[in-house]
């Protein structure tokens, strides 16, 4: 536990610079409106990349284009060297199992228990017919309970998700994503529905669990302070184009003005 109190990524063994995710010339459009206009982005094994930018800049679309919840209109998304865009639906489902996702509105099944919600992270690995019986293997349940303990919700494991507070629900969302044993975490505005103190705790938890497992994180976040506090690299989006890329220290006042130009005006 105490191991991740030290600064990431230096605490981990040897930094691994080869990108897990490599995005090239990514484009997306809604009808005629171009939302992403040629995005290039690399995410390495020990990265915690924050995507910042004003609302409407394409942050959410960018994240969703990676696992094709939104279909891109062009470019490449290489995950561990495999381009995800030409994959057939079954192959895409297999690739998605390795990519965990955490959502702004948590996206839990409200009427089911915390345990059920977390175990659902393993649905992709479970045969369809077997999963319909809802009889889970014991080791899967044990693993889910371990993750629930890790995010600090052991007492609530058998409670329905709609009984929990926002911060607790997001912890369930984190545990569900980890249940996939992902090799990449996509995080979409994880704190926008939370109050500031809880937001910080949730970001801390995401960084810790990702660090423990050496999972690279790509995180949309409009709160600049949180982004600066938790990420190792930042990408500033504006009108579907990357306007800034670098370490948080390199983000000065001018770059911020530049990225948020549209909103400041």
């Amino acid at each position: 536990m105490s191991r991740n109190d030290a600064e990431r990524p230096d605490a981990a063994a040897a930094p691994d610079p080869s990108p897990v995710l490599r995005i090239r010339g990514l484009e997306a459009r809604y009808g005629k409106r171009e939302v992403l206009r040629g995005i290039d982005l690399d995410v390495a094994r020990d990265d915690f990349v924050a995507i910042i930018g004003p609302s409407g800049s394409g942050k959410s679309t960018l994240i969703r284009c990676i696992n094709r919840l939104v279909e891109p209109s062009g470019g490449q998304v290489l995950f561990e060297g495999v381009d995800l865009l030409p994959l057939t639906p079954p192959a895409l489902r297999r690739a998605r199992r390795d990519i965990g996702m955490i959502f702004q509105e948590f996206n839990l099944v409200e009427r089911m228990t915390v345990l059920d919600n977390v175990v659902m992270g393993r649905l992709g690995e479970t045969g369809t017919l077997r999963s319909l019986t809802r009889i889970w293997r014991k080791d899967v349940v044990d693993e889910a309970l371990t993750l629930i303990a890790r995010v600090g919700l052991s007492e609530h494991a058998r409670q329905r998700a709609d009984r929990l507070s926002g911060g607790q629900r997001q912890r369930v969302g984190i545990a569900r994503a980890l249940m996939q044993r992902p090799r990449l975490l996509l995080v979409d505005e994880p704190t926008s529905s939370l109050d500031p103190r809880i937001a910080r705790e949730v970001m801390m938890l995401i960084r810790e669990v990702a660090g423990e497992r050496r999972i690279p994180v790509l995180c949309n976040i409009h709160d600049l302070d949180l982004a600066l506090a938790f990420c190792t690299r930042m990408v500033g989006l504006q009108h579907g184009k990357a306007r800034f890329e670098g370490r948080p220290e390199a983000l000065d006042r001018t770059s911020v003005q530049h990225i948020y130009e549209a909103e400041v005006l």
């Binding site: 489902r93 996702m101 099944v109 649905l123 369809t128």
Partner: peptide
């Protein structure tokens, strides 16, 4: 929301229907 979440985790469409 739950539909999107389960889809993103690689669940099949019958599983999404059943669980989400």
């Amino acid at each position: 929301g739950p539909i999107e979440a389960l889809r993103a985790s690689g669940a099949g469409s019958l599983q999404v229907f059943w669980f989400a």
